[in-house]
Nucleic acid binder design. Sequence first.
DNA 1: CGAGCTTTCTTGAACGATTCCAGAGAGCGT
DNA 2: ACGCTCTCTGGAATCGTTCAAGAAAGCTCG
Lengths: 147, 147
Amino acid sequence: MVTTWVHEPWPDRLRAVGLRVTQPRLAVLDAVHANPHIAADQVAERVRAALGTVSTQAVYDALNTLTDHQILRRFEPAGSVMRFETNEGDNHHHLVCRRCGSVVDVDCAVGTIPCAVPDDTKGFMVDEAEVTYWGVCASCAAERTAP
Amino acid sequence: MVTTWVHEPWPDRLRAVGLRVTQPRLAVLDAVHANPHIAADQVAERVRAALGTVSTQAVYDALNTLTDHQILRRFEPAGSVMRFETNEGDNHHHLVCRRCGSVVDVDCAVGTIPCAVPDDTKGFMVDEAEVTYWGVCASCAAERTAP
DNA sequence: CGAGCTTTCTTGAACGATTCCAGAGAGCGT
DNA sequence: ACGCTCTCTGGAATCGTTCAAGAAAGCTCG
């Protein structure tokens, strides 16, 4: 069987890292899992749709805490707001549209983690290589030529 | 001709792309060239030290315009403010300290431009692969173990 | 099963980098 | 020099994110 990263239920994953299981956190996890690359305000929207009133602060706190504990992954293409995705333990990268900001996942071009390590790390202890491919998505390219 | 990127004087480079030659722009170019990875507010500081009063807006406008014309390169590690460096036409990447935010250049691990291209570009026209290595710099690592 | 200790959430405000706007000023081609 | 534009000034607005203090809710242990 292929690394079936069968999702353990969120509550278990929270407890596993010593976090309390709360409704806002579960709703945040659901929102991010259902919508990779989602921004904080959209997470808030969905969490509120699910639970009713939830403070912005609770959403940010959940996002930050979950990111700190590696359950979520945060990334932030230049010029964009923070975006989140669940941490699947894979090592994919992102393709970002310069025009509309849309993001899609791409597998690591090299295939090994952390993908590529510089020859000379200048004394740094490198733990991650983040690759962002910049370009123009198909629909934006179409718009440009045919306005 | 082997793009010997011998620095043409800034005024020539500005005119070459159809931009007017102004004191703020020249001072911005000097500031960025002398301090790679510099942030906008520090550019403003240095520009003011050189010229006297210069509006924040003029600095931002110069940075943006020069970036648009490929004379400067802008990058923005997650959680950091915008940083600038002169565009030397090389294809180096950045090593960023998670603790103190310091940035150092590293040569492209693969050696070719754009370094790496994903197998499947999902319809995107990719023009750049930006690589950010995350880690902890030597001095921050030292601090942690010996507080 | 409930008390009590912490962690987490709420409310409301602060913050700061970047951008927007309108008008004054300065390059540069003619 | 003259003017047409592009650029800069000054001041304010924006908006994502964080800070702070108190209320609420999970979890642990008796």
